[in-house]
Design a protein around this nucleic acid. Structure first.
Lengths: 235, 235
DNA sequence: GCGAACCTTACGCCAATCTTAAATCCGTCT
DNA sequence: AGACGGATTTAAGATTGGCGTAAGGTTCGC
């Protein structure tokens, strides 16, 4: 399975439009766990809190250049790094210096190429056996196996779709706590645009049909009116 | 990663109508902890006393511009900042200067957009998991878990609604102290309109039914006649 | 005892949420 | 290219439960 689609990507660029564009393409390609940062400070904070699996760094940042950021990151994590740079600008440094980047792309670039390079780096660095698996957990009588995208229950096994998986992952990461609809939309669709509220509800319903004995009176995937949804903590 | 809806927002603008309008929209979107300031001085005072999580600053203020205010704020706190400015006015400074603002919006703006941008900044800066969560505390035999909007007690678990949560949060922040009815209304419904006294009482009653063994003779959520309510300090 | 402040209960509205079905998108196979 | 099938989104109508209101009761302080 395309396991690296579940890797966390840290995206650092000061221009929101660029971030958004890259984000769009990554999502179109199936990635969902993308964290944005506009500067070094934010990037480091996200690094610490999210422990991303790979970073895409712009060379030019408001509070320091990407190279400085890289060495700060290196003090925290050995994750692979992919640089973005404008043509000419520091291109030589990227080429010449063995500064520990795993790849670099010159702006402007084809989004497709970025995705390809990124996938290549992920595949290379996170070789087969290093794989940590997506969680497997129990909910009532059902076993949810995110790694194989399936739910096993009294009625047999049912597959999970991509969106269902992304939602369940987000909910699982926050089990026992309320996750707002906004946060869920954000986790799955990324876009700051709302307008997915309805779609979210439909997906929630679908998930309930797979993990709840009585989808209409849920016992595990609860709605908290006015706040969001909550996956019951097991035990 | 619980929600940024519980983050404290400092709103600085000299025009009360603008503040009110923004306030309304923020509340409509679920934010409740909004602090108003009309000038730099008030803003700094609130900064110190409330330690907001994010600030919305107008560029034009009676006692200095927003940029000066930002650098004063920076001496106190590294919180993210979102600027408001009239079209044209200082737009270039906002764009050009890397003055540490996290975003800016040009007036006139769609309120929806402000909320979106604000949420985006909060999401970015206050990364999940590092997040301090909403408090969990004990009251007598009951455990109040604001993060999951639930009260666990001898009789099992009961969910909390959005308003109950907002009230309990305000009371908890001031536990052991008296909170006036006005302050509570303010915290939940926003200012002016003081037609919520009765509604407040009803909500208090509902909370008591969830956290008191004998709701009619409360031991923890106490009435202080003529003044307000008080949540007993736990021990 | 009297008024004011507060409590208690019940009821109806309406926005938030659910539910279903149909439309659209998208990748794959022929 | 065209057709098919599953996944996702849109749309529209139904439902629900939180919230606010009001009306009557109770308690407190003077």
């Amino acid at each position: 399975m395309n396991d690296w689609k579940w890797k966390k990507i840290l995206l650092v660029d000061d221009e929101p439009e660029i971030r958004q564009m890259i984000d769009d393409f990554l999502r179109k390609d199936g990635f969902t766990r993308i964290y944005h940062a506009a500067n070094c400070q934010e990037a480091l904070a996200l690094c610490r809190s999210q422990k991303p699996d790979i970073a895409i760094l712009d060379v030019m940042l408001p509070d320091g250049d990407g190279f400085a950021l890289l060495s700060s990151i290196r003090r925290i994590s050995p994750m692979p790094v992919l640089f973005l740079s404008a043509r000419g600008e520091d291109e030589d440094r990227l080429l010449g210096l063995g500064l520990g980047a795993d790849d670099y792309i010159v702006k402007p670039f084809l989004p497709r190429e970025l995705v390809l390079r990124l996938s290549a780096v992920l595949r290379r660095v996170y070789a087969p056996q290093t794989e940590e698996r997506l969680p497997v957990f129990r909910i009532g009588d059902y076993t949810v196996d995110l790694g194989s995208a399936a739910v096993r229950g009294p009625g047999g096994e049912q597959p999970l779709t991509a969106k269902e998986l992304a939602l369940l992952l987000k909910l699982y990461e926050n089990r026992g706590r309320i996750v707002t609809s906004d946060a869920l939309c954000q986790a799955v669709w990324g876009d700051d645009d709302d307008g997915y509220e309805n779609t979210l509800m439909v997906h929630i319903r679908r998930i309930r049909e797979k993990i709840e004995a009585e989808p209409s009176t849920p016992r595990y995937l609860l709605t908290v009116r006015g706040l969001g949804y909550k996956l019951a903590k097991e035990e």
